[in-house]
Design a protein around this nucleic acid. Structure first.
Length: 656
DNA sequence: CTCAGGAGCGCG
DNA sequence: AAAGCGCGCTCCTGAG
């Protein structure tokens, strides 16, 4: 039986909550006996007490966030979490401190306690502090047992997990923010001390609050302890190591290619509509709809779909009036402008010492997936134009890149959760899943042989589109549009009614999926949340609302979150198992990136040539990370550059 | 001037 | 009848 409602109390203003929490004071007070450390003896005392107590909260204050920024670590705050109230403020770059410790001094006196696995560390967004401990002081941080940001995200993914917001919302702590101009390192000493002390103190209060919540939520606590917290280290290691960037390729190929094509397309468009700003949809819309009098398809919207429908009017008008074409060139401009803005201009900003270190957001999504930013390595172009961008990402010298992908993992989770015999059988057959579902849906209309001969057969397109769309609760209108966008001939076009019938046919073909989807909707309406395979919660209070627009959106989100979130759980478990496997075997793979259902590694090329079996062993770890009722399939690619696959046969034959 | 929101589009 | 789920990033736009 599922747990009843989420235990977390309502946000601020709810008196009962405050009573239950027994919040003593509405303002966090830095303990009176805090120590502003100004001597080596003081550092040694701090280390001695940490070793005694075996647990502490810590926080760093810095001037910057990004790898590519010039970031300075201003000081460390340590709050003993058990048995005594002690706070140590350790300055390393405070303008008004009498003495600032050097990195060597920090390393000498605090290095061992930070590196000691058996000493428990608590922090808020610890990965951030972990990077600065390493990059500024050369100190590794082991033994992270708690992260209040991640805990908050598990306990309620809909609320802000910024420390200050948690304090205000859940602990009703006021007067927390300190207003002061300028960088932290030139703040007046008392203010800076107070700020650091309060951060630690608040983290400790939040930690204690969260532990009370977890005490009633054993499944979530297990997910926290065994998956989320250990994964901090994996994200940290991937970020520290980064991925190599080929600046020469960028300068000589990627940038000139994209920017020249963008400029050429811009010139062609502006030759027709004049010097309007092509990056302003409203200006272009005015030029096309009012200037050229092309028909408005969907108001002033000028997205890809509208543009494609405008082509025929443009061609016709251009012929009549005797002008150059504009729409196709504008589509071309859009394409290269997007590449230019999102990748060509963006990516090199994040190169540090020839490598790109993305920032994995452990609390980036409400479903449990990771997001990542600066740069977002999960949104690099993939299709036809993809390699032009991806080729700039290369393995370290002497290595090859290895990618490992879960195949159709979300549909497999759907089969798992629903228990639908036909979908399970389709996966068990090992046949391409879209082909298999197509045959099940249209058994009398097409044969396997015909489908194999024509991967883009309209019936397979229908099946494939529904297979994906169903996970998200796609409606008939969009299904029709999506299928029609892939039509090869006029005969392939379907109506909205056709689409509605297709959806019905799909659910009739897989009856248990229909039941599963309905059950999920009922459940979210009843409980207000759904859970993933590992018990991660997605709270969707809107599902209880009478407004059908809001409640049906929440229902779609519920159906999707269970699937997407379980796939995320699987990848996270796989990452942990792979890391352990690599530690055990000493295989020299390095995990570089995680992209939802794909992991990217690099491995020394010479080693791999003589250890081909290692690839199978590694994929086996991924496949067996969890047991589903259907087979889990992992595909492997080797690459000299991202975007350029190597044929395995060629690669391993050379070794002979 | 800053800031939030929308449009648009890249990925799974 | 109908906004298909989850993200990050850019630019433009209008509000303050």
């Amino acid at each position: 039986m599922m747990e009843l409602f989420p235990y977390l109390p309502k946000p601020k203003g709810d008196k009962k909550v405050l009573r239950d929490l027994k919040v003593r004071e509405r303002t966090v007070q830095v303990p009176k006996n805090f120590t502003f450390v100004q001597s080596i003896a003081g550092l040694q005392e701090c280390a001695r007490i940490i070793k005694e107590r075996k647990q502490f909260v810590f926080d760093l204050e810095t001037t910057g966030l990004d790898w590519a920024d010039y970031a300075v670590c201003i000081g460390i705050a340590v709050r003993i979490a058990t048995g005594m109230i002690r706070v140590f403020i350790i300055p390393t770059n405070m303008a008004y401190a009498m003495y600032n410790f050097t990195a060597a001094e920090i390393r000498e006196h605090l290095g061992d306690v930070f590196e000691d696995e058996s000493i428990s560390k608590i922090g808020h967004n610890v990965k951030f502090d972990q990077h600065h401990m390493h990059n500024t002081y050369g100190v590794d941080t082991n033994g992270i047992t708690d992260d209040t940001m991640i805990a908050m995200h598990l306990l309620n993914e809909n609320e802000s997990h910024k420390l200050v917001d948690i304090a205000e919302t859940w602990l009703a702590i006021d007067g927390w923010k300190i207003k002061q101009d300028g960088h932290f390192n030139v703040w007046p000493l008392g203010m800076a001390q107070t700020y650091l002390g309060k951060d630690c103190e608040t983290t400790l209060l939040v930690y204690e609050f969260q532990q009370k919540q977890f005490a009633q939520l054993s499944v979530l606590k297990k997910l926290y302890d065994e998956v989320e917290i250990p994964n901090i280290q994996i994200a940290y290691e991937m970020e520290q190591y980064g991925i190599a960037w080929d600046g020469f390729y960028y300068d000589t190929v990627m940038k000139p290619e994209v920017q020249s094509k963008r400029a050429a397309a811009r010139a062609k468009v502006q030759a027709v509509i004049g010097p309007v700003n092509l990056d302003s949809p409203s200006q272009v819309a005015a030029a096309l709809f009012d200037g050229l009098r092309l028909p408005r398809i969907n108001g002033n919207a000028l997205d890809k779909k509208v543009l494609h429908r405008l082509i025929k009017y443009d061609v016709e008008q251009a012929r009549q009036v005797g002008r150059e074409l504009v729409i196709e060139n504008f589509i071309e401009y859009r394409k290269y402008a997007t590449l230019d803005k999102m990748f060509v201009q963006e990516l090199p900003l994040h190169v540090v010492d020839g490598r790109i270190h993305t920032n994995n957001k452990t609390c980036g999504t409400r479903t449990g997936r990771w997001a990542c930013m600066r740069p977002n390595m999960q949104q690099l172009p993939k299709a036809a134009i993809g390699p032009l961008i991806r080729r700039a990402f290369i393995p370290s010298k002497g290595n090859v890149l290895v990618t490992m992908d879960y195949g159709q993992i979300e549909l497999r989770w759907l089969a798992h959760f629903s228990g639908d015999e036909k979908l399970i059988a389709a996966f068990a057959s090992g046949e391409d899943i879209h082909t298999a579902t197509c045959l099940l849906m249209f058994p009398t209309q097409i044969t396997l042989a015909e489908l194999k001969a024509d991967k883009d057969h309209p019936l397979r397109v229908r099946a494939k589109t529904i297979n994906f769309g169903i996970l998200y609760g796609m409606g008939p209108q969009l299904l029709a549009d999506t299928i029609n966008a892939q039509a090869r001939t006029a005969a392939d076009i379907i109506t909205v009614d056709d689409a509605r019938a297709l959806i019905k046919r799909w659910f009739d073909t897989f009856p248990k999926i229909k039941k599963y989807v309905n059950d999920t909707k009922v459940m979210v309406g009843e409980y207000g949340f759904v859970t993933t395979i590992l018990g991660r919660k997605r709270r969707l209070p809107d599902a209880k609302l009478p407004d059908p627009m809001l409640s049906s959106m929440a229902e779609r989100q519920a159906v999707n979150s269970r699937i997407q979130g379980s796939a995320a759980d699987l990848l996270k478990v796989a990452q942990l198992k792979i890391r352990q496997f690599l530690l055990d075997t000493h295989y020299p793979f390095r995990m570089l990136l995680a992209v939802h259902d794909e992991l990217v590694f690099e491995v020394p090329e010479a080693w791999l040539r003589h250890n081909e079996a290692a690839l199978d062993e590694l994929t086996a770890v991924m496949r067996n990370a969890m047991t589903l009722v259907v087979p889990v399939v992992v595909s492997v690619d080797l690459l000299h550059r991202w975007g350029d696959k190597i044929h395995d046969d060629d690669f391993f034959e050379e070794a002979v």
